[in-house]
Design a binder for these strands. Structure first.
Lengths: 257, 257
DNA sequence: CGATGTATTGAACTCGATCAAACAGTGTGG
DNA sequence: CCACACTGTTTGATCGAGTTCAATACATCG
């Protein structure tokens, strides 16, 4: 859902860097025969440069893609020529679930920076599903997670104000970095302000203004695309803010100015 | 994504009414052995009354559910005690994909009217996946469709104004009725104004106002929960409206490389 | 019938969009 | 090296769609 850019690779980054990185979740625990065959079917990773597309809406969908490194944005082209970004994706994410029903992709996926992916042909799944049922179970779990992420996005769009959206965006980003083994308080954004605004369904200007406001409040420090989180608890507090409006508990006068 | 209520069952309704209705998509084309075993594992359908919950967020997820009839809302409970409806579901939908990753449901599903569902234990899938790979493929397709629907919801929340959201809501509802073999221009809403507003992320009052406006424009006729679509083309036109703002289409080609 | 939840309509306010203008970083060619 | 263009970012001023608050009507059911 969120992505990070690793311009200056931090030392803490644990990058296995073999071409199956994004797939360990799939391979682990499979029986050796299945695993070997699967590795054959997948082959080496492919490198995409910033701006290159992994697949486009409308193209035939015959594979899943496993992100080894880098980051991507997934978006739909709208009737009016604009795009709507529906998610950011990063290492260990699986892409391509969208096109299974009528065998063509429903959105476009584009690299935000130099990124590595492995391709897993759907035919391979059919071939292997018999020999190890775990394979499909794993995939279902990955998909399940994506559905969960979409839910979060829906709630974000439906209930959160601009401040909360941006706060949540950075917190999510931070937790993603943590999962990757990177330092999680210094983030190099791989996406532009435009991308962030588009994803959060805000005006670009609103994102800028909020960044300034957050910086003035001491929540974070912004330097172009380098963002340093200074007060994550403060960001979390913003997310909980409408609770305060809510409970007619007791001493309201103490809280409000 | 949308649901209909069948209070006065119209004659055009083709209801097979055996307890596997929601499952035909799964069963069709499977080999006989698998099919028979699967039917055994599923058993008879269960009836839920309005307000009853199919499952709740946090509960252990060990099954998928296939809707035979009726309609449901799926929602997440928010910190502040409110709920966010993330989708409506109706006959032939499959529910329960959300909880696969950490084996507990991420949202609650509640019947909007008397509804029938079949339960498909996940263990059954494991048992059968070896004997017929089609089974998992079918499920993946259903999930894929749900992801597609969520995408639409995200775009709806992100890009559409109130008018467009409601117009799209009714058009979707109409197409759902069509799929069910019902008359598609007379809709009996199974959900309240509150539910609609919540799902569309609008204030309840806004939904009311728009209903009045749509009625005054001759787009539809509202009588409490009975809605008759009078001008579907008009509704579609509302969806396309921001195109008109957009293209000063004259010398656009000069800009492009 | 009254009572309680549901729906409609009006008036005022607010958050974020839009319009506008300036500024910063990056590359290109003279 | 600087001037230029180009893209991405920041900040200010204004405006409007939709929310919120409030009051009223409707419906459903004991």
């Amino acid at each position: 859902m969120a992505s990070i850019q690793v311009r200056n690779k931090p030392e803490t980054r644990v990058c296995t860097c073999h071409h199956y990185r994004g797939m360990e979740f799939l391979l682990a625990g499979l029986n050796l025969e299945t695993r070997t065959r699967l590795e054959q079917l997948i082959g080496r990773q492919k490198i995409l440069q910033r701006g290159q597309k992994l697949f486009m809406a409308g193209e035939i969908s015959d594979s899943l893609y496993l992100i080894n490194s880098g980051s991507f944005k997934a978006f739909t082209d709208l009737d009016n020529g604009e795009e709507q970004i529906t998610g950011f994706h990063f290492a260990d994410d699986v892409l391509g679930f969208d096109g299974l029903e009528d065998e063509q992709h429903t959105y476009t996926v584009e690299a935000l920076e130099t990124s590595g992916i492995c391709r897993l042909p759907l035919s391979a799944l059919d071939e292997l599903s018999g020999s190890d049922p775990k394979l499909y179970q794993r995939l279902l779990k990955k998909i399940s997670r994506q559905i969960g992420n979409k839910h979060m996005t829906i709630i974000m769009l439906g209930r959160m104000n601009a401040e909360q959206r941006l706060a949540q965006f950075f917190l999510k980003l931070s937790s993603v970095m943590e999962e990757c083994g990177c330092v999680s308080d210094r983030i190099n954004l791989s996406m532009s302000r435009y991308d962030i605004a588009n994803y959060l369904s805000l005006a670009l200007e609103t994102v800028c203004r909020l960044l300034s406001r957050f910086q003035n409040s001491g929540l974070l420090k912004v330097d172009n695309r380098r963002v340093q989180l200074l007060d994550r608890e403060g960001l979390r507090h913003i997310l909980r803010q409408d609770d305060e409006k809510m409970p007619p508990t007791v001493a309201r006068d103490l809280v409000l100015p």
